[in-house]
Write a protein that binds this DNA or RNA. Structure first.
Length: 497
RNA sequence: GGUCCUGUGGCCGAGUGGCUAGGCAGAGCUCUGCAAAAGCUUCCACAGCGGUUCGAAUCCGCUCGGGACCUCCA
């Protein structure tokens, strides 16, 4: 039994994972800001850490998985207008902020369900933990590492750096930050440019606001994670995860805040997933290259040739190591789709193979090979969750499985133990750990394709003046509540009544 | 500009100095009413230039290219 090793961003090396408390794992993952719809890039951390969560459970740990919802306090543009991202969008859409938050939270949950992600054990919201955030800020002020200016509170990074190591996680030096930090308007409230807001005073028009010892305002972005992680996982816990883009300033700031409040770095292991890129560029709002998850599923996007199912996307993500960038392309998704089908077909064949075989393998060479490949599953996943390598081994086993089915390979070639071992391992890894499942037939995209087929058949029938068939199709569809309309130029469309 | 990461065959991607990664696509064959699926075989690599080494995709240096962070960000 090999030991689990994880790459710790904090120490920049792979380390043997040892839980703080025997048998338990505390894991915090930065969740979504629910001011908008999730895009493909967002799916990566949640799928990655879902697999990690599942694997810890598989190993027998009792896991507490906390993933927050950022529904307040995340600045669109720090300093300038002191405007909350959530409330800004709300004004545009003429919605109550919480209505907007609810809408996108629901959408997010729906997407997680599509991906077969297990819900976290606790999903705290920033707005639900204002009290905890305020008390944490008070502690930082009392300890002299934050200061109040005009109702806002800033963390004094320079002072912190005099007493603690600052910038270790992101590999940054405070002097360099001084030189490179952009000079934003509103910076004049800060003592130093690299200071970050713990609390911002709310201007009169700001809708989302809470009372605080410093006046009405709203929390800074970084403090929510510190407050909620501390509350639910304690001052020190095992895993902190998130996207690599959060390394700085978000996680660096979390470390500083928690160090002041709790005496040390919050997490023992910092795990970061890499970005999903599109034509080599990170997918994100700033680049205007996002493909929303709803669009991924439906195919309704200029860059998409077709829709891709949630499981295809999940498989696509698992086929590469989580710390590597993953470039989106139709071709790559198409390859993933076909690959997954091939693997899943083999898996289903495997589960149906009878194990009544012999105790002894008639082909010991093959038997050994299978045992080796299956045995490596654990070795690979223990090596910083190398899902891609596990999948590669499964693909290598597929010809063996299909060979037995097609009788190219004798059903006594493998010992019954080996066959059983393979069956169990495939189920455990594919379903339990990787969280893959058979696609359901309820894809809306599929219905669309079926309808297109029906329409094509009807067109052909009409072309041959086979109106009996043509009318049969239209009338029976109508009985099902689907209206077919013949449009000009021989085109047809359908709608539901 | 600073810090860090990265460059593998048509595409995607593993790769811990010596041993076939794997998938998708392509080609051929077997099976097959046709097709699909499946099986077998096969083509195509390690950005460039130096260096270390008996031996380098793998270590070192330089050059060129790509990216991330430094500002909201998964």
């Amino acid at each position: 039994m090999s030991q689990l090793k994880v790459y710790n961003s904090y120490t920049r090396q792979k380390e043997v994972f040892e839980p703080l408390v025997k048998g338990h794992v505390g894991m915090y993952v930065c969740g979504p800001t629910v001011s908008g719809e999730s895009h493909l890039g967002h799916s990566r951390p949640y799928i990655t850490f879902d697999v990690i969560y599942r694997y810890f459970q598989h190993m027998g740990y009792k896991v507490r998985y906390v993933r927050n919802i950022t529904d307040a306090g995340h600045f669109e543009e720090e300093g300038r207008e002191a405007e909350d991202k959530i409330s800004k969008k709300a004004v545009i859409e003429k919605l109550e902020p919480m209505e907007l938050v609810q809408k996108y939270t629901n959408l997010f949950h729906w997407a997680m369900l599509q991906f077969n992600n297990i819900e976290p054990n606790i999903e705290p919201t920033a707005t639900g933990h204002i009290v905890e955030q305020i008390s944490m800020i008070e502690k930082i002020i009392n300890d002299g590492f934050a200061y109040v200016v005009n109702g806002s509170v800033y963390f004094d990074v320079k002072k912190y750096a005099e007493h603690h190591e600052y910038g270790k996680l992101s590999g940054r030096k405070i002097d360099e930050l001084l030189e490179t930090t952009r000079n934003l308007e509103g910076q004049n409230e800060k003592r130093n440019k690299q200071d970050f807001a713990l609390w911002k005073a709310a201007p009169p028009e700001h809708i989302m606001r809470w009372k605080s010892p410093w006046g009405e305002g709203f929390p800074g972005w970084h403090i929510e994670c510190s407050a909620m992680a501390t509350k639910y996982l304690g001052p020190e816990f095992d895993i902190h995860g998130g996207g690599m883009d959060l390394l700085f300033p978000h996680h660096e700031s979390e470390i500083a805040q928690s160090t002041i409040c709790n005496g040390h770095t919050p997490a023992r292991y910092w795990l970061h997933n890499n970005m999903i890129t599109i034509n080599g560029k990170k997918m994100g709002k700033a680049y205007n290259n996002q493909i929303m998850l709803t669009q991924m599923f439906s195919g309704d996007h200029p860059l998409l040739e077709k829709g891709f199912s949630p499981m295809t996307i999940r498989f696509f993500i698992l086929q590469t190591h989580y710390r590597s960038t993953l470039d989106f392309s139709n071709e790559a998704l198409l390859a993933a789709e076909r690959g997954l089908r091939r693997l899943w077909d083999a898996y289903e064949v495997l589960q149906k193979l009878p194990v009544s075989g012999s105790e002894k393998a008639s082909d010991t060479g093959l038997d050994e090979k299978v045992k080796k490949l299956v045995g490596e599953f654990e070795e690979f996943i223990n090596d910083d969750f190398s899902t891609a390598k596990v999948l590669a081994n499964m693909f290598e086993l597929a010809p063996v499985i299909n060979g037995i089915k097609d009788k190219h390979i004798s059903d006594t070639a493998l010992s019954s133990q080996t066959l059983q071992l393979m069956k169990t391992a495939f189920k455990t890894y594919l379903e339990d750990i990787f969280g893959l499942r058979n696609e359901t037939e309820t894809n809306s995209g599929k219905l669309d394709r079926v309808m297109q087929l029906v329409i094509d058949i009807r067109k052909e029938a009409r072309g041959k003046k086979d109106y009996a068939t043509s009318d049969k199709i239209r009338n029976q569809l109508q009985e099902l509540g689907i209206i077919l309309k013949d449009e000009k130029g021989g085109e047809m469309s359908y709608s539901f009544d």
